[in-house]
């Protein structure tokens, strides 16, 4: 039974992750007064890329090919550890969230290496920014999850998110969870390359971060990268949601449905943020991420006062 629920969650993630992208885009379209793209547009784009040929620069080596593959493998395995809607994950053990964070790190390491493999100065620039921002986001994520572990007296993701339920915010740990939600939202935005850290729609190579790193990837390679990014958004969204809106209705299927709706709500929220905010100046981004770490540290102190 446990295994089945884990597999159901993974299948849902694999199928529905691109939909988050279209929810964000539709929300932005509403704000801009446009009709917006069809709901299935991200799927069509992936399908189109898969069918295309691939162009390899003569500078590149095997590292360039390995980047997308390792990236998707790492995110896929991390998904096996992350629960949604209070359901148990496929695999769960104390300290598993560290493995999740480091698996995302593996994907990033290979993607950054692949970017440097092209020898392009733009991609080098993007890679340099990516490693800086992710190095600052990592403490915020891990400290937030540690604070949750201390509040829920459990060291595994499944245990943590099973212990946090609708009653939790009204307890003494409530203010701490409020802070953790803030910190994790910042990490969510930064890791998924959204405004105010990065602009996914920018068309100037000099200002891009994530997009510029994958300039040289094409065809199925690029499809893998896009899909991995969508899965990563699903994954970090589930982590955020479990702390931000732990609604439980007593029935497992309703809980799962609430989780899916919550993920959609997060996507809408991202769309609202992107429509209403400007991007931060690059020099201000580190401060934004450090502030997230600080929120999580304050939360730690509140949980264990």
């Amino acid at each position: 039974m446990l295994a089945i629920s884990g597999i159901v969650q993974i299948v849902l993630a694999l199928v529905l992750a691109p939909l988050l992208q279209s929810i964000i885009n539709r929300t932005k379209a509403v704000f801009a007064g446009r009709r917006g793209q069809p709901w299935l547009q991200p799927y069509r784009e992936l399908w189109k890329l898969v069918q295309k040929g691939t162009v390899y620069s003569r500078t590149t080596t095997a590292v360039f090919v390995a980047g997308p593959i390792v990236g998707i493998a790492a995110v896929g395995l991390a998904l096996a550890l992350v629960p949604i809607g209070g359901w148990p994950a496929l695999l769960s053990f104390p300290g598993d969230f560290l493995l999740v964070a480091y698996l995302l790190g593996v994907g990033r390491f290979f993607l950054v290496s692949a970017a440097l493999d092209t020898g392009s100065s733009f991609e080098g620039m993007g890679a340099s920014r990516e490693v800086l921002f992710s190095a600052l986001a990592e403490p915020a994520l891990l400290l937030s999850l540690t604070a949750l572990a201390a509040a829920s007296h459990s060291a595994s993701l499944t245990g943590i998110y099973a212990a946090i339920d609708s009653g939790m915010p009204a307890t003494a740990a409530g203010p701490a969870i409020f802070l953790i939600t803030g910190a994790m939202f910042v990490v969510f935005l930064a890791e998924n390359a959204r405004i105010p850290v990065d602009d996914p729609n920018t068309h100037l190579e000099l200002t891009m971060i994530h997009e510029v790193m994958v300039l040289d990837h094409s065809g199925p390679d690029f499809a893998l990268i896009q899909y991995a990014a969508q899965l990563k958004m699903w994954l970090l969204g589930s982590l955020l949601l479990g702390a931000a809106a732990p609604f439980r209705f007593g029935s497992a299927w309703l809980d799962l449905l609430a989780g899916l709706v919550g993920l959609g709500a997060i996507a809408v929220l991202v769309g609202i943020v992107e429509s209403s905010m400007a991007r931060l100046r690059l020099v201000r981004v580190p401060q934004f991420l450090i502030a997230a770490s600080i929120l999580s540290i304050v939360a730690l102190f509140l949980v264990m006062r």
Binding site: R108, V112, G119, L136, L143, S293
Partner: peptide, 29 residues
């Protein structure tokens, strides 16, 4: 927690930055 978990996380991220730099600039491009 801040000293152990926070700093190990920061060290891990910065080490990744440093070794993508070392490997990327020596062996790639």
């Amino acid at each position: 927690c801040v000293l152990v978990i926070g700093s190990l996380a920061l060290i891990g991220g910065l080490a990744s930055a440093c070794f993508t730099k070392a490997f990327g600039c020596m062996f790639l491009g």
